[in-house]
Nucleic acid binder design. Structure first.
Lengths: 236, 236
DNA sequence: GCGCACAAAACTGTATACAATTTAACTCGC
DNA sequence: GCGAGTTAAATTGTATACAGTTTTGTGCGC
């Protein structure tokens, strides 16, 4: 009897709008700088403005949307992608995941062994994908992401994981945009991942934390250089 | 002509509700575990449910409010205060402020000198307040908070500062609750602060970062022990 | 043709009405 | 008296109406 089966259920509408919009922003279909209009989104997604409003507030708080305030009024736009922002974001991820790795290294020996085995397995696939003649960017991204998520999920508490869930996807905006430009440095990534796995296995919190920080700080350097070359997006 | 001069202006209502509720939660007037009802708050603050809704969503995302989900429904309650949560929260603050200190140590020498002078000045007042016969808890808290905020504001970028603004106030819930129990360890805090200032002055990022992390990790240890003794609040 | 003034349209903030669903209360039977 | 079932109250999710602002468009004077 329902008009369209895809209509989100009561209670899921805000989440639905949130995910739809976030996907559009992360994948670049909503370009940086684009103005966002509540009514337009509401119409397109077949819901009222109320759930849209909730989703927009969340996106804004998480940093996907900015208030481009003219004199004294808020007008939401898609956040731009800049070299400075990329660097800062990656450094923050370095700390969050570094803390997770630190706690992973303090896990009891049994769970640590399982975790390390998983990490090595993922990294092996990562190596193969990076060495392939024809690199599949989506796969490479997916494996890198999964590697990091594995030890975060294994060791982080609720708060740290929540923070990770909010911050990490924003790095995806940059990673997806520049993954083709960064594929050269994937061998380095593989080596750094191996170091992380070794450190967690060794059980030294400081070493594990530093290994992760190193990985992300290097990525921050590489990425911000690339962006500075190619030029910022959504900023003029 | 307006009924009450205190009525918030158009556009400020959600922020107003947010701050009012957050203050109530942080100061413990809204006890952990308390059920939060939209209509009740709307009535009390003389606004409609719409701005209340926005404020609640934000509070929830930031961790002040939880969804105590019965079968499949969301029912917001004030988040409990537990030993585990305190520890995790403080460890996260350690990383965020550690990163800020790291970047403070990389500031140009001139701004660094000013910053360090400010830090030392604040810490001197802190020492005096801690040594006073009759400790004023509010003042001690305020000085500690200002010490850390000083180098964060001086060195952190927009993203890191935003993160700090969201995470740090939550630590306040614990600090205020247990400040009387922790006042014994204030001398230690003074020494740790001095170490932080020295490290930033020295210009070594790693040392500065570690000094801050040490400060917060120690605080995490002390606090979680105290809580474990006294017992968790809002959890049963 | 250019700029300024005014009017119209668009958009957001807020309030409120309505619907769906959960929670509480109450009654009836045992 | 106690429990199950049923009904009433409360609460949230959603939509929509309305008001205040900002933006856009248009025409007039110069």
């Amino acid at each position: 009897m329902v008009a369209r089966p895809s209509t989100p259920l009561r209670g899921d509408r805000p989440a639905h709008v949130y995910q739809a919009l976030r996907a559009l922003i992360v994948r670049g279909q909503l370009a940086p700088g684009t103005r966002i209009v509540e009514t337009e989104i509401a119409t397109r997604l077949q819901v009222s403005r109320t759930p849209v409003r909730g989703a927009l507030q969340r996106l804004q708080q998480e940093g996907y949307i900015l208030d481009s305030r003219t004199p004294l009024q808020s007008r939401p736009t898609v956040a731009p992608l800049t070299s400075d922002d990329a660097r800062e974001l990656f450094l923050i991820v370095a700390e969050i995941e570094g803390l997770a790795a630190r706690q992973a290294a303090m896990l009891p020996i049994a769970s640590r062994a399982t975790l390390v085995a998983n990490l090595i397995a993922i990294n092996t696939r990562f190596e193969r994908a990076a060495a392939a003649k024809k690199q599949i960017h989506d796969l490479l991204y997916e494996l890198d992401e999964r590697f990091h998520r594995t030890y975060v999920d294994a060791a982080a508490g609720v708060r740290l994981r929540a923070l990770h869930d909010v911050v990490k996807p924003q790095a995806e905006r940059y990673e997806r945009l520049y993954v083709s430009l960064l594929s050269r440095s994937l061998t380095t990534s593989f080596i750094e991942h191996a170091a992380i796995a070794r450190a967690i296995k060794g059980g030294d919190p400081d070493v594990a934390q530093r290994a992760v920080q190193m990985n992300w700080r290097n990525a921050a350097d590489r990425l911000s250089k690339v962006i500075a070359t190619v030029g910022d997006r959504g900023q003029w």
